[in-house]
Amino acid sequence: MTGRTANTVPQRPSTPQRPSTPLRRALGHELRRHRDLFAVYGTFMTVTLLCADLLDLRLGFVLILLAVRLPADLADPVLENGAQLRSALGISRADAVRARTVLISAGQLLLVLGTAGVILLSDWAPGTQHWSTIQVATSQNPGPTSPTLRDHLVDIGMFSGAIAWTHALIGGDAFRPGAGLTGRRAVSVYLGVCLLLGIVLSLSGMLAAELQLRSGADDDPYAHLRFSKDAAQAIALSLALGGGITALVLRCRRWVRRA
Rank of each mutant, 00 (worst) to 15 (best):
Gly127Ala: 12
Asn81Gln: 09
Leu103Glu: 12
Ile104Lys: 01
Ser92Met: 09
Asp95His: 12
Leu79Ser: 05
Arg93Ser: 11
Val68Ile: 14
Asp73Tyr: 00
Ala94Val: 02
Ala99Arg: 01
Asp123Ala: 13
Pro77Met: 06
Leu66Ser: 12
Leu63Gly: 00
Leu63Met: 06
Ile91Asn: 00
Thr101Asn: 09
Glu80Ile: 02
Asp73Ser: 15
Ala96His: 13
Val102Gly: 04
Arg93Lys: 10
Leu85Gln: 08
Asp73Lys: 11
Gly82Phe: 02
Ala116Asp: 12
Ala67Gln: 05
Ser122Thr: 14
Ser105Arg: 04
Pro71Gly: 11
Pro71Gln: 09
Val97Ala: 04
Arg69Gln: 10
Val62Asp: 03
Val68Phe: 03
Gln129Tyr: 12
Gly127Leu: 09
Asp73Val: 04
Leu103Arg: 10
Val97Gln: 01
Arg86Ser: 14
Ala67Asn: 08
Ile91Gln: 01
Ser87Asp: 11
Leu120Arg: 14
Leu110Thr: 09
Asp123Cys: 02
Ala96Phe: 11
Arg100Val: 06
Arg69Cys: 08
Gly127Ser: 10
Ala83Tyr: 00
Gln129Ile: 05
Pro71Leu: 15
Ile119Asn: 15
Gly90Asp: 02
Asp73Ala: 14
Gly114Pro: 05
Leu109Ile: 13
Asp95Lys: 00
Glu80Gly: 07
Pro71Val: 12
Leu111Trp: 03
Gly127Tyr: 07
Val78Asn: 06
Pro77Cys: 08
